[in-house]
């Protein structure tokens, strides 16, 4: 395959990858995080204290773990909080993002390898070799 054909394919793949990234960014956003939290009545919260109501964590606990403690700021959380994707959308958003991440890593590694080969070749030919730093006799070169 000619170099230009390969480069064109890379460009196409890059465009697709970028679109996938955009989709991943949109998909990974859970509506749960941005939904308004029910505000407890008559609670004049002092700005600065954590607004985390224990009840608001209920939709974030891992599936299978016991439900959150009742709506009372004084109740202590007794179970460990395990972060995990809650909706199908989140689950797939994470998978798409990771797939794109590794694909990008592979592609960038491939391109960087070509750059490395190129710069090694240039160095080997003696082109663009920087003048060695002047050193006194006997001093190590590095």
């Amino acid at each position: 395959m000619s170099r230009s054909r390969r480069a064109l394919i890379l460009l196409g793949v890059w465009l697709v990858g970028g679109l996938a990234a955009l989709t991943a960014g949109v998909a990974a956003q859970s509506p749960g995080t941005l939904a308004p939290r029910p505000v407890p009545k008559q609670e004049l919260r002092v700005p600065g204290t954590p607004s985390a109501n224990p009840a608001s964590q209920e939709d974030r606990l891992a599936p299978g773990s016991p439900p959150a403690s009742p709506v009372s700021k004084q109740e202590r959380r007794t179970e460990a909080l395990r972060p995990a994707p809650q909706t199908i959308r989140e689950k797939w958003g994470i998978r798409v993002f990771l797939a794109w991440l590794w694909f990008t890593t592979g592609a960038l590694l491939y391109l960087l390898r070509r750059l490395v080969r190129e710069s090694d070749r240039v160095h080997g030919l003696g082109y663009a070799t920087p003048e060695p730093t002047p050193r006194k006799k006997g001093e190590p070169r590095f």
Partner: peptide
Amino acid sequence: LIGGWLLALAAA
């Protein structure tokens, strides 16, 4: 291509 992909990674 490299720069663009790096930018996309940075944006992500």
